[in-house]
Amino acid sequence: MSDKIINFDHVTFSYPDTESPAVKDLSFSIEKGSWTALIGHNGSGKSTVSKLINGLLAPDDLEKSTITVDGVKLAADTVWDIREKVGIVFQNPDNQFVGATVSDDVAFGLENRAVPREEMVKIVAQAVADVGMADYAGAEPSSLSGGQKQRVAIAGILAVKPKVMILDESTSMLDPEGKQQILDLVRRVKEENDLTVISITHDLDEAALADQVLVMDDGVLIDQGIPREIFAKVDLMEKIGLDIPFVYRLKQLLSGKGIQIPETVTSEEELVKSLCQLNLKM
């Protein structure tokens, strides 16, 4: 158990005045230092899970549901300890700024924790440099691009040294270059800071980076596995309203035209190879 940083055991949660729970009897665990993608359609319970992980929401019945984060069991008196351990980068970069400058913003979490000023200055400078924004330390957040704003949000999280970073659709508003830069950055800071990353996403390219994929549908965890295994389940993906990765969609269309590609072909490179072989047989 020691290498499991997050553990959900029979977790059920309902929003007030709703008939059915948003999350039903959910059990899973996440390994320390891993990258997990949480996928599912809008309203499947993904964001509820992220709020349960950092104690923004509490399960219906703490007797029956257990949530453990980095060895600490979620309870009324431990929720602040847990929030120290989990940072969330949200979807809309404009909704998460509080400071007048980039540095002020990054310092916000430290101010809340009453970190002495000399120390704070050092930590902020380091965090801002870590995300490649040192040149913008004094800049006004509103003058930054969406991708730069998300970098600052990540710096704010790094500054308070959490154990877990949750990306809640954090790249969905960015252009393709901005998206790639953020994913590269997260990958790097994850290694440097020994972070565990959970990314809640609709973007299959982002999910494909993960060590494990959890699939949610109507509050229930319906599948989990490595990306390759999960995305091969074309019917399941379609049934729950998720996109099918490009390779699987193309294989399906080709199959409809009488061109059968082996099941073992799951990447674009393999598909190119397979098609070239068929072409040579002509």
Partner: peptide
């Protein structure tokens, strides 16, 4: 990789192009 087709815009065009080139392949 040596399998040259006309540039497609959509996945349906891509599948059509590939199929047209492979036509007759058992």
């Amino acid at each position: 990789a040596g399998f040259v087709i006309k540039q497609p815009l959509t996945i349906n065009e891509l599948a059509d192009e590939i199929a047209a080139r492979l036509k007759g392949v058992p």
